[in-house]
């Protein structure tokens, strides 16, 4: 990836992170940690890879994205807003009664959301259904899904993993946002889903492990997934929960709590500083 593109993606990801903080702080609740850890992947998909059109969000030929870890809606909403699906200003209404930005993604209310999710484990199955439809209709669209590492504790994920391989869904790429933390603590302490890459490999998936915050690695993995035939690809993305906000990084407590006003201001300041660092380089 050329440096200009990479710099632009980094800027966009930072704007998306600012939107996450704004949304969650306005709501006084929500899930910043896993939204921030997924932000670079969302940025790459929506600003570099996916065939989507904010003017025609239901285009039958579009690429699909399913946020199986639906609680990270601030990440998805901020990405969609910055991509032009709805006004960035609307992020301030997140989780509020007069807003369409539900706590968890709602495909009927939010332009650009391809599947309603929130109950963990179900989104990946829905993504399997979309990929199956793509095969049936002989369409070239691709289906992307993002899973949490804690979400892998849901048995349904493995039912879906079996089905995706059984039906040779090479048009499906799943990301595991491997930040190592879930709401009650370390995934290895709560209910260890590891070894994650080995488990998917045993189910027959093409497995690629990357640094979730390195756009070159994300691009290489996505391209490799597109080139892989007859089986689905999982990109095990090693990430930092709360990435980009110093006091949130690697802290389980920021899985599902919102920053107070001063904390949000500090977070936005840090992100702005990172942004001006990028500008001045």
């Amino acid at each position: 990836m050329d440096e200009m593109t990479k710099k632009q993606l980094k800027k966009t990801a930072t704007m998306i992170r600012k939107g996450i903080i704004t949304a969650v702080a306005s709501a006084g609740s929500g899930h910043p940690g896993g939204s921030l850890s997924l932000a670079d992947i969302l940025t790459y998909l929506y600003f570099k890879e996916m065939n989507v059109d904010p003017q025609n969000p239901k285009d039958p030929d579009r690429d699909r994205f399913v946020l199986s870890k639906g609680h990270c809606s601030p990440g998805l909403y901020s990405t969609l807003a910055h991509r032009g699906f709805f006004p960035v200003e609307d992020l301030k209404g997140f989780r509020q009664a007069d807003s369409y930005l539900e706590g968890h993604p709602n495909m009927e209310m939010v332009p650009g959301v391809d599947m309603s999710t929130g109950s963990l484990g179900q989104g990946i199955s829905a993504a399997v259904g979309m990929a199956l439809a793509g095969k049936l209709d002989k369409k070239n669209y691709r289906v992307y899904a993002a899973l949490g590492d804690g979400e892998l504790e849901e048995g349904q994920v493995w039912e879906a993993a079996m089905a995706a391989v059984h039906y040779k869904l090479d048009n499906l790429t799943a990301f595991v946002d491997y930040n190592g933390l879930q709401i009650d603590g370390n995934i290895s302490d709560v209910m260890n889903p590891e070894p994650i890459a080995d488990k998917f490999a045993a189910f027959g998936w093409n497995v690629i492990s990357i640094n979730a915050h390195d756009f070159d690695e994300i691009e290489k993995a996505v391209e490799a997934a597109k080139a892989c035939k007859d089986k689905p690809t999982v990109i095990v993305a090693h990430s930092v929960k709360g990435k980009g906000v110093s006091y949130m990084e690697n802290q389980a407590q920021w899985h599902g709590s919102a920053p107070k006003k001063e904390q949000a201001e500090q977070a936005l300041k840090e992100l702005d500083e990172y942004l001006s660092g990028l500008e001045n380089n």
Partner: peptide, 18 residues
């Protein structure tokens, strides 16, 4: 297969594609 939960959500995904 014997995976009713998976089947229902796969059905949802298929339906979302028309």
């Amino acid at each position: 297969g014997i995976a009713e939960a998976n089947m229902m959500a796969i059905a949802a995904g298929l339906a979302s594609c028309g």
